[in-house]
Design a protein around this nucleic acid. Structure first.
Length: 891
RNA sequence: GGGCGGCUAGCUCAGCGGUAGAGCAACUCGUUUACACCGAGUAGGUCGGGGGUUCGAUCCCCUCGCCGCCCACCA
């Protein structure tokens, strides 16, 4: 016998170990059975090795698991390929922090090799955290295929891609402005830059003409960069400055002669209309500088301190110290023309948090513009579809305006760029050092010493290859052939640009096929007040704590139920508790079945049941299964959850089991056997349908129910096939009949409650004006109605008895005979309210039908529907009105 | 400055052309042998405002108002 509640704590680890050990997470068994089995594949968005599972991971991975388990049950060779990302900067930071804590060791002091050894050691010790946590969620990943972005195979793929794109001219080296992070002393991509609003000021500086003929005023928020000014620009049509274009200015601090140039970039509306040009430290100025062949003076060192290109007094100063000093000096020189406080957006590194400098360096770039074209087309033609669809707009917006992708990073942890330089500075891009040496030898006719590029690739470079590199590319593996393109990618909108777009580009370029047919964008989880969860706010919900508290199934069900179209989810513990209760409800329904010996019957045919209740529940099960299947196919996760919730709780538990009780306790052996078998069958179907969402409780019940009298069963992973039912099992008659019964019972309950009839009191129900069908239904279900509505009897009569409370049901009137409980005033009020409701309905419908336009233009079935509605409302109104008159005559 | 969302019962959200739904909360009953992590019932909404299209609009169009997110090099 089952306990009263499900105990996830003991059950979950036991079941997971059993699943994993069985090998059923891998598609290999299915493929061995049928090499041509249809495939389904998902590659996990690889979490950072440094990471631990947060609630967003829980959501993202739950959805993937739901889909994988569903497709596996449908008989597909389903692969969910797991793995982790080396997460360049993030991981390097973690280890650097460790070193600092250990005694202020700088990685540079340690040296590259020793440092990397430390990182690998750290990875070996702590890198498995998140995959262990995924197991606790129930994730049915194929761990035998687990990959890491820095493992040998993936590293080889990275080198191959780099070399190929280089040869194609799609990767190149260039000297231009990059977003420079002075803390990491590395370039970062546009996407890693965050604009933050900060307090700043416009400083208005006067630059005197060299010939002493006056001055020109310019404004800047960054005085320190003025040391690198090499021009002042004005708009060519700006009348104020017509005479001065081409004149030379004397730089106020360096004394350098700089020209006034005419350029469209200068906006006459802004400030004085003149703008200082610092080509080496501003993206716009860089362009202006190129147009006018201006000198590009880099004034910073890699840590953003002023370098030797500036006057002695400023050398070595931190940029912000220098800013203050420049301002002071300009004031002393009498060239300060004003300071205006302003809040403005300033670029910050998303990881380091420090202000980013546009900085002139040599970096490697990928020609994203070219790579993006097929990726745009693929989404335009629906080769890849986003769900929800509107994310495609975001994708297009970015892809159509894409900039060259800076792919080199001045870090140590990552894929080292496979480029070597000889003493002459010639570049050899090859997959291996040996190949580079050979190439150099061929070039020079003798052996050359080579130096490998110090930089590593942006972490997202290897992530971009993930859908095919993990499947064995560049080898032509069976996995690659079978599982690429993958079926669906489930990810968050925050990495559409970072990751999804780049996988599209790389996948299409190297595989000539999209990396995934569908991209499901899951929501962002916020706290119950809608705040973003963050450690500093102290509002983070730890998914593992929630699993401890409510069980993995409850958390999973909640996350699935809340995954609608909205872009964020407000998560409250109360919700999880509610869905934990749902699990308990199911558990107890199973317990009830067990107690009543509802055991699966081999060869049971749900299409052949005789009892109306059984025919009805079979039909409802079919409808539920179809709705769930459709919802899963459409990634309509909230529908999956609500459909199951309603069916299991509100249909199966609330009605079917209650209706089954009299039969299960009755003397009719045939009816009893049929009902037991039906209940067991429905329960099995429910377990299967719920399994993708709540795998633990369903698996446990699967085993428990089998153990009770039936044959032992293998795990659901192996033995449960997804429900598929013929149309013949649907039953409209039974549905209508049970609908009538439910309405009847509900009405009686409602009246009892409103009239305060004590629960123990049993009253007769009288049916007046029943048609033939109703008589049949009544005869068939008299016992059920009597029990469920707590009646003494149900009978027919010509008129409703004195002191009864009537209500309308179909063509008939039913009256609950409760004279001793009736409060005349209350009953009168009840009737009046009912009558008003029907009258209101009738009025509105009549008005509609009186409108000739409606009759002429509305579809026939809508008109017909309204005619019926009017007739019913009028009839119900009339019946209750006469009842009210009788009531008043009594009073 | 561009772009994208949201505004529906006290709260969280479904519905997205044919007269408003769920869960939670509230209230009233209830120890009927699966379940009090339960059962039965009740109450609660001019679907953000204003226009328009339509026989008919919460649903489509325009507009305004809040709230949120993303992108953007403006001195």
């Amino acid at each position: 016998m089952l306990e009263k509640t499900f105990d996830p704590k003991t059950v979950e680890p036991r079941l997971y170990d059993r699943w994993e050990a069985s090998g059923a997470f891998s598609p290999d068994a299915r493929l061995a059975q049928d090499p041509n089995a249809e495939t389904f594949s998902i590659v996990i968005p690889p979490p950072n090795v440094t990471g631990s599972l947060h609630i967003g991971h829980a959501l993202n991975n739950t959805l993937q698991d739901v889909l994988t388990r569903f497709e596996r049950m449908r008989g597909k060779a389903a692969l969910w390929l797991p793995g982790t990302d080396h997460a360049g900067i993030a991981t390097q930071m973690v280890v650097e922090r460790q070193l600092a804590a250990e005694g202020n060791i700088d990685r540079r002091a340690l040296g590259r090799e020793a440092f990397l050894e430390r990182v690998w050691k750290w990875k070996a010790e702590s890198g498995g955290t998140i995959t262990r946590q995924l197991r606790r969620l129930g994730a049915s990943c194929d761990w035998s295929r687990e990959r890491f972005t820095l493992d040998d195979g993936l590293s080889a793929a990275v080198r191959k891609v780099f070399l190929t794109l280089y040869k194609e001219g799609l990767i190149y080296r260039d000297k231009r402005l990059v977003n420079w992070d002075p803390r990491f002393q590395s370039a970062i991509s546009d996407l890693e830059v965050q604009q933050l609003e900060v307090e700043g000021a416009y400083y208005h500086f006067a630059y005197p003409y060299e010939d002493g003929s006056g001055e020109i005023v310019v404004a800047t928020t960054r005085p320190e960069t003025m040391l690198g000014d090499t021009a002042v620009a004005v708009h060519p049509d700006d009348e104020r400055y017509q005479g001065v274009i081409g004149k030379m200015l004397a730089h106020p601090i360096t004394g350098r002669k700089i020209p006034v140039v005419a350029d469209d970039y200068a906006d006459p509306e802004k400030g004085s209309g003149a703008v200082k040009i610092t080509p080496a430290h501003d993206f716009n100025d860089f362009e202006v500088g190129k147009r006018h062949r201006l000198e590009m003076i880099n004034v910073f060192d890699p840590e953003a301190r002023l370098n030797d290109s500036v006057p002695q007094a400023f050398r070595g100063l931190d940029r912000f110290v220098a800013r203050q000093k420049i301002v002071e000096q300009m004031e002393e020189l009498g060239l300060m023309r004003g300071i205006e406080k302003v809040r403005h957006a300033v670029p910050h590194g998303d990881r380091s948090g420090v202000v980013i400098e546009p900085y002139l360096t040599d970096q490697w770039y990928a020609d994203a513009k070219t790579l993006a074209q097929p990726a745009i087309k693929a989404v335009e033609t629906d080769a890849t579809v986003f769900t929800p669809k509107n994310w495609e707009k975001t994708y297009f917006e970015w892809m159509r305006n894409i900039e060259p992708w800076c792919i080199s990073r001045q870090l140590w942890w990552g894929h080292r760029i496979p480029a070597w330089y000889d003493a002459d500075g010639l570049i050899y891009v090859e997959e291996t050092e040996a190949a580079a040496l050979a190439a150099a030898k061929a070039k020079h006719g003798r052996k050359m010493e080579l130096r490998q590029d110090e930089d590593v690739l942006d972490t997202w470079f290897s992530s971009a290859l993930w859908p095919f590199s993990t499947l064995g590319w560049p080898e032509e593996t069976k996995d690659l052939k079978r599982f690429y393109p993958t079926s669906v990618l489930v990810t968050g909108f925050d990495i559409i640009f970072f990751w999804v777009a780049r996988m599209m580009m790389m996948g299409l370029h190297f595989q000539k096929e999209v990396p995934f047919h569908r991209v499901f964008i899951n929501a962002l989880i916020r706290d119950e007040r809608g705040q973003k969860m963050s450690k500093s706010k102290g509002n983070v919900m730890d998914p593992l704590e929630l699993v401890d508290q409510f069980g993995a199934d409850a958390l999973r069900f909640t996350l699935v139920a809340m995954s609608g179209q909205a872009r964020d989810i407000k998560l409250a513990k109360q919700r999880i508790e509610g869905y934990r209760n749902f699990g308990t409800k199911l558990w107890n329904a199973a317990r009830f079945c067990q107690m009543n010996e509802c055991v699966r019957v081999e060869g049971f045919d749900p299409g052949a049941v005789k009892l109306t209740v059984n025919r009805w529940i079979v039909g409802e099960t079919v409808k539920c299964a179809r709705a769930v299947t459709k919802a899963l196919e459409d990634c309509a996760f909230d529908d999956v959850a609500t459909t199951l919730y309603r069916f299991i709780w509100n249909v199966f538990c609330d009605w079917y089991l209650e209706l089954a009780k009299p039969v299960l306790n009755g003397d009719d052996q045939v009816a009893r056997a049929e009902t037991r078998a039906t209940a067991a069958w429905v329960l099995d179907e429910m377990l299967k349908l719920l399994h993708p969402v709540s795998p633990f409780i369903t698996e446990e019940l699967w085993a428990e129910l089998a153990a009770f009298g039936g044959p032992a069963r293998a795990t659901m992973l192996i033995s449960a096939d997804w429900p598929k039912h013929p149309d013949a099992w649907l039953n409209a008659d039974a549905e209508a009949e049970m609908g009538w019964l439910i309405e009847l019972v509900s009405e009686v309950r409602s009246i009892r409650s409103e009239m305060n009839v004590p629960p123990a009191a049993r009253a007769p129900l009288v049916l007046v004006g029943a048609g033939a069908d109703t008589k049949v239904r009544l005869a068939r279900h008299r016992e059920l109605i009597t029990t469920l509505a707590r009646l003494s009897e149900v009978k027919e009569a010509e008129t409703a008895p004195q002191g009864s409370a009537p209500f309308s049901i179909g063509e008939a009137t039913a009256a609950l005979s409760i004279a001793e409980f009736i409060d005349l005033a209350a009953e009168k009020a009840r009737l009046q309210k009912e009558i008003a409701g029907h009258a209101n309905d009738a009025d509105r419908t009549r008005k509609k039908l009186d409108n000739p336009d409606f009759i002429a233009r509305a579809p026939d079935e809508v008109v017909e529907e309204n005619r019926e509605r009017l007739a019913e409302a009028e009839a119900a109104q009339a019946k209750l009105e006469s009842a009210l008159i009788r009531l008043e005559s009594v009073a």
